[in-house]
């Protein structure tokens, strides 16, 4: 994926110079390794700051909400699906966008890598499928496929679903992945076991709402957790308040989540927050044959009625 950057810069330069876009949303190198950060490039002289490697896990669709400029946006498979969701939900107009599609081979799990090097990481470079990590002057080579973020390892939509330009030829999608193994494992538990499982899962939660902020779906002007009149959800770190927050956050993503993993990546204490949303994603697929953000012409299952919709749960 390293070779992509020349094409990204070239396309961006053309778009900016021709005046087709006012800015490009892409990634620049972060201040510390493994943490590339989103950036807005407004003139072609600054294009050299743009980078592309396996540390670009943040979902850039999050930066499009209600923007009025003409925007060129660098989009991985998941980003492009969130752009589609934004278009469906009227948060951005398709004609305002020039989408630079990136066939994505997965992002690395920064927590996994950081956990392998006690002495900290000075620098990280990569080449095809090899990640080289420098820690206290010692360089270690690692296999990228062992280090992928969980959602990337299970991804079946690596290619962007909509794009105007492509930074590289489309790649083959992964086929034989068992996306919902975790969900099935939890489904097999008893009610009390499930309760305890999620209790343990969210016990480190500090209610910082980083998962919400990183999520492109969470764009409400006032989030339910910030409201105090009425107060929908307790603001303390009481286990029940925390659980209510995670329940509701997940439900707000039902039928909309693209499993981009931004929430999990953003969590400062490493909670697997995708465990909540993947069940809803699986249900949407099983019950409505729906995966979010695949086409701007399809309405999502929660705002359409079909006579065949499952309704057995309603008395």
């Amino acid at each position: 994926m390293l070779g992509y950057i020349d094409n990204i810069r070239e396309i961006s330069k053309r778009l900016l110079d021709e005046g087709r876009v006012d800015m490009i949303i892409g990634f620049r190198k972060g201040t510390i390794p493994l943490m590339n950060e989103p950036c807005f490039v407004k003139n072609s002289g600054e294009l050299s700051t743009l980078v592309w490697d396996s540390n670009c896990g943040i979902n850039l669709a999050n930066y499009l909400t209600d923007r009025k400029e003409k925007i060129g946006i660098v989009a991985k498979g998941c980003d492009s699906r969130n752009i589609v969701t934004h278009i469906i939900e009227n948060k951005i107009k398709r004609e305002k966008l020039v989408i630079i599609g990136i066939p994505c081979k997965g992002m690395v799990d920064k927590r996994k890598i950081a956990g392998m090097f006690e002495n900290g990481i000075e620098d990280i470079t990569e080449e095809d499928n090899i990640i080289r990590v420098k820690s206290r002057g010692v360089e270690t080579s690692l296999n990228k496929s062992d280090l992928l973020q969980e959602n990337c390892a299970l991804c079946v939509h690596r290619n962007p679903v909509i794009y105007d330009e492509l930074a590289a030829p489309l790649i083959e999608e992964q086929k034989s992945v068992d996306r919902y193994a975790d969900v099935l494992r939890i489904e097999a538990m008893t009610a009390q076991e499930k309760w305890e499982y999620f209790k343990d899962l969210i016990s480190p939660c500090i209610r910082c709402y980083a998962c919400r902020n990183a999520c492109p779906l969470c764009y409400c002007p006032t989030c339910f957790v910030d409201e105090s009149r009425p107060q929908w959800c307790g603001k303390s770190q009481d286990e029940i308040d925390t659980r209510t927050f995670h329940f509701l956050r997940a439900y707000h993503c039902a039928g909309r989540c693209t499993d981009c993993g931004a929430c999990e990546r953003a969590c400062p204490v490493g909670i697997k927050v995708r465990q909540f949303t993947s069940k809803l994603n699986k249900d949407c697929l099983d019950m409505f044959g729906w995966e979010a953000g695949l086409s701007p012409d399809q309405r999502p299952p929660l705002d359409t009625y079909k006579p065949a919709d499952p309704g057995d749960f309603i008395k």
Partner: peptide, 12 residues
């Protein structure tokens, strides 16, 4: 129910 609420506790 997936998140641990007992079946039957919630009805629609």
């Amino acid at each position: 129910e997936h998140m641990g609420v007992e079946p039957g506790r919630l009805s629609f």
